[in-house]
Computed example of a mutant assay.
Amino acid sequence: MRTDGDSWDINTGVGSTALFVAAARALAGRAADAPAHDPLAEIFVRAAGPEWVDLLEGRVPGHPLLTPDFGMQFQQHQIARTRYFDDFLNAAAATGIRQVVILAAGLDARAYRLPWPDGTVVYELDRPQVLEFKRETLTEAGHKPRAQRHEVPVDLREDWPNALCENGFDPSLPSAWLVEGLLIYLPPAAQDQLFDAIDALSAPGSRIAIEQMDPLPEAAATAMADSDGGSDWVRLIYNEPRSEATAWFGARGWTGERVYLTDYLQELGRPLADGVQQQSLINLVTVVRP
Rank of each mutant, 00 (worst) to 15 (best):
D86T: 12
L107F: 00
A80D: 12
G106Y: 06
F85Q: 04
L40W: 02
A109Y: 06
E57F: 03
D87Y: 00
F70R: 07
W52G: 10
A111S: 09
R110A: 08
A41I: 08
Q78K: 14
I97D: 04
G106A: 07
F85G: 07
L55H: 09
A105E: 08
A47I: 08
N90P: 01
H37W: 09
A47M: 09
F85W: 05
P61I: 02
A105S: 13
P39E: 11
L56G: 04
L65K: 03
G96K: 12
I43F: 04
A91D: 15
T82S: 08
A91Y: 00
V100T: 03
L55F: 03
A47L: 08
M72P: 06
F70S: 04
G96L: 09
A47D: 07
A92Q: 12
H37L: 13
V60C: 07
G96E: 13
A47F: 03
A48L: 05
T95V: 13
E57D: 15
R110W: 11
Q78Y: 03
L89A: 07
L66G: 11
G62R: 13
V101C: 03
P39H: 09
P50E: 13
Q73I: 09
A92H: 08
G71C: 06
P61N: 14
G62W: 10
A80H: 13
A47W: 00
A92I: 11
I79S: 11
Q99V: 02
A91C: 05
A91P: 05
Q99W: 01
Q76R: 12
F85I: 10
E42L: 07
V100D: 02
G96M: 10
A48G: 12
A80Q: 12
A36E: 14
V53E: 15
E42S: 10
P61V: 08
F85A: 09
P35W: 06
D38Q: 01
Q76W: 02
A105N: 09
G49K: 15
F74V: 05
I43N: 01
A94S: 15
D54C: 10
P35I: 09
Q76T: 13
G62M: 12
D69C: 12
L103D: 04
